[in-house]
Write a protein that binds this DNA or RNA. Structure first.
Lengths: 235, 235
DNA sequence: CCTCCTATCTTTACATCGTAAAGATCAAAT
DNA sequence: ATTTGATCTTTACGATGTAAAGATAGGAGG
């Protein structure tokens, strides 16, 4: 909290060279855009950098603006307020997350691998992007009425429900679930999400420390997943 | 965020009546203590009130001081900083939580009830004290090096490990766990914690809405818990 | 009884934050 | 070429955490 606010932003003194091509459509990544350019995207990239560098507490509107090299009020025009920026960034996180899930499932060959690929990818994503995961699941400052966030989160949930349906060899309907289906989805999600949160919060250190020498979180997670579904896999 | 900071605190004009009994040990709850008294406890009570009324975002040092009717810098002397106050309050939360667990387990008669009593009490506590639960498990601003918080959280974990040991009819050692024991503890905790977080965040609305008419979260939770342990209960 | 000491509480001050409003600037439309 | 409107900057305000200095008693020692 001792960051001097008077840190000068590196900007063109007063005028950019008139030759600087800053077309709205083209992405000028070589030099910082002065007035126009893809500020929105630049801000989101800056925000992700700040988030993974300084954590959730460091993700402020002003810090993002600083990181992007613009005035502190610039983000307002693109995102309205902090909730807006945070929500758009969370949407990106969900999309990254969904992509990771898909590619992990595609890479799985055996039925056992298929059953474990998704949860393992879930935890792996959270470990690789703890800031993003915290943004997606810890922050209270998310506006799910924003279409981008709503859709991305919805897609994430649909993927989960689908995976459970595959495992149970059932068709998951769009608008109706049996109690057992709902319970299976809730159980899988709760287990994976709960484990991830506890792991990221360091609350499993206590368990891990008492386990046989050198037991990794992944091994613990795998063991914990295997027990209930043992014998329930097809073939 | 539009709270006028100039809200006058109701204080004795300049001097309290010299007859006001403000012994350090006695708790003068009838009239606000001026200089001495149990400010520490009063601040913690005020903090809990603010937390459950205004949520995590509303729990600020200054808001707590306002609620307690003292100057905004008064809490500093008792808790150091916001992390200090928040950590002490979380410790109280863990103690409340532990007490709720114990009384719930004591009230259970049948083996099935014993197996379900703890998880149900877990979710029930979180629903009854969402602010406290968020403080204990969502905030990043906790200092577990504080003895009070460390001990209370430790006791909570020990209770969980113990309950799992009872269900498995094993003795849980103090300093060593088998992989299966650790996995069982991690699974139970992850499931309950994950479900609670998702429920409090409203992320289960999607599932609940698709379930048979009038299915409560408790019913979903119970169903989700039953499946893996069905047939594993003694007698 | 008087004085001083020390813990406790208040005042004041400062850097930071989110947000609103007004001014500047430039690409593009007319 | 002028106007327009979107984009960005400046300025301003209230709120926050925290540090530092001042005020206030309750008790200790003479």
């Amino acid at each position: 909290m001792a960051k001097s606010e008077t840190a000068r932003r590196p900007r063109a003194p007063k005028k950019t060279t008139p030759a600087s091509a800053s077309s709205r459509t083209a992405s000028a990544k070589t030099e910082p855009p002065y007035h126009h350019g893809a500020l929105r995207e630049a801000l989101l990239e800056a925000a992700e950098r700040v988030l993974e560098r300084d954590g959730l507490a460091g993700l402020t509107l002003r810090a993002v603006a600083r990181e992007a090299g613009v005035s502190h009020a610039a983000p307002t025009h693109h995102f309205g307020d902090l909730t807006g920026l945070v929500s758009e960034l969370a949407a990106i996180g969900f999309r990254q997350f969904n992509a990771a899930m898909v590619s992990a499932c595609d890479a799985a060959a055996t039925p056992l691998a298929r059953a474990l690929a998704r949860p393992k990818a879930y935890v792996a994503y959270a470990q690789a992007h703890p800031g993003m995961y915290g943004l997606m699941f810890r922050t209270e400052r998310l506006d799910y009425s924003r279409p981008s966030l709503h859709e991305a989160a919805e897609a994430s949930f649909a993927g989960l429900a689908n995976a459970i349906g595959m495992m149970r060899q059932e068709q998951i309907s769009e608008d109706a679930l049996t109690l057992n289906q709902g319970a299976a989805i809730a159980r899988a999600w709760s287990m994976v999400h709960g484990f991830t949160m506890l792991l990221l919060d360091g609350r499993l250190e206590d368990i891990l420390g008492r386990l046989p020498e050198g037991t990794t979180p992944e091994r613990l997670f795998e063991t914990m997943l295997m027990a209930p579904i043992a014998g329930k896999l097809p073939a």
